[in-house]
Simulated assay, not measured.
Amino acid sequence: MPDAGAEPSPRVGLLGLGLIGGSVGLAARERLNAHVSGFDPDPDVRARALERGAIDHAVEDVGDLAGSDIIVVAAPVQALAERIAEACAVAPDAVVTDVGSTKRALVEGAPKDSNYIGSHPLAGAEVAGVEHARANLFDNATWYLTPRADSEGILLERLHRFVAGIGAVPTVIGHAEHDRLMAAFSHVPHVVANALVAQAARALGDEAIPVVGPSFRDATRVAGANPPLWAGIYDANREAILTGLDDTIALLQEARALLATAGTEPVEAWQREIGDQRRALLDVGMTGGALSELRYVVPNRPGVVADLALTLSRAGINIHDMSLSPQPDFRSGEVALWVADDHADRARALVEEVLAP
């Protein structure tokens, strides 16, 4: 596997200096020896980020991030599209990414041949602000990358290496698939938690509040979280969330019908099946183990590496690392991909299918 330590220190620009942006800065400075410049519209936030050590240099204008190799946009949801466009304009040679939890509108709204590649770290905390940032926030966390079919391979490789370098597990996925999965695993559960709280409050009526048990606390931990943030997320992923809610309502109706039947055996079987499904879902993730190297010569055409990465992603195969090297004639290049050993044969077949004339 290539030695990430041999890479030159990256110049990182941060657009937004809250918990996530600040944690990116701390991790990049500590682990990649990066030089980090940061912009935030609030001068007090810029000052706190400097004091916290999240950035080397505070800038007062987005244009001052022009020399960056990587720009991470960590702005509020409603400002992401505008900030991404600004970053792409001032730094056309940088890879520009963001940390928003919805991707479809941003990816599809980016201009053709844009240097923007969407991303989303599955990491955070119940506190906000750069004062709570920490360098280990992304350790072993899945960090989704959502390139488009025409994304430049060199930019995808740069972003992939950066994300891995700050401790996360880069995982390529299509933008629409990302939003569908986020609706299922994050956004709809937040809506359901809100509904559970409302249902319990109505059931209580004017009675004294009883002792709340662990089931209610666990199921509603995220209820009412950060209203401005979540209003923006619900708005940005409305279509996928509504579809997910329709599916949830249908499942609740099935559960109601099951519970209305006489006898405990069907309910016990249902409870057991759901328990098995939960354990299987929680077991899904990146695990350690041996990797196989796949090395191919690819034509020098836009999107070929992104196509390979998205093809493997759709097959459930994650690229743990990648490396690109141009050939002397610059008409082709060599791409090396590292995947889990047990996925290697399937990955080879898929790559060769993509590269077939």
Rank of each mutant, 00 (worst) to 15 (best):
V62M: 03
V284P: 08
C88K: 06
R104W: 06
E152T: 04
A208Y: 02
D69I: 10
T248R: 11
A74I: 01
P8K: 01
D44R: 12
H320G: 11
I55R: 13
E157W: 04
E152P: 00
A255L: 15
V24D: 09
D56C: 08
I317C: 07
S114H: 07
R348K: 00
R346I: 04
D98N: 03
H35R: 15
G100H: 11
A6F: 04
A34N: 11
A347M: 01
T243H: 14
V297M: 09
P299L: 08
L196P: 06
G213S: 03
A28W: 09
V172W: 00
P43Y: 12
Y116P: 03
G109D: 01
A135H: 10
P10I: 12
D40P: 10
D307R: 08
G118R: 01
F162I: 10
D64L: 11
D345A: 04
G285Y: 14
G303C: 08
A149W: 01
P210C: 08
P121T: 02
A183L: 03
D40C: 07
D179R: 00
W230R: 05
H175T: 01
P41Q: 09
A262K: 15
S151T: 05
E60I: 11
A340D: 14
V96R: 05
L324A: 00
V188F: 11
L50R: 06
A269M: 13
V298P: 04
N300Q: 15
A290M: 12
E207N: 07
D341Y: 08
V298C: 09
V211T: 04
V90R: 07
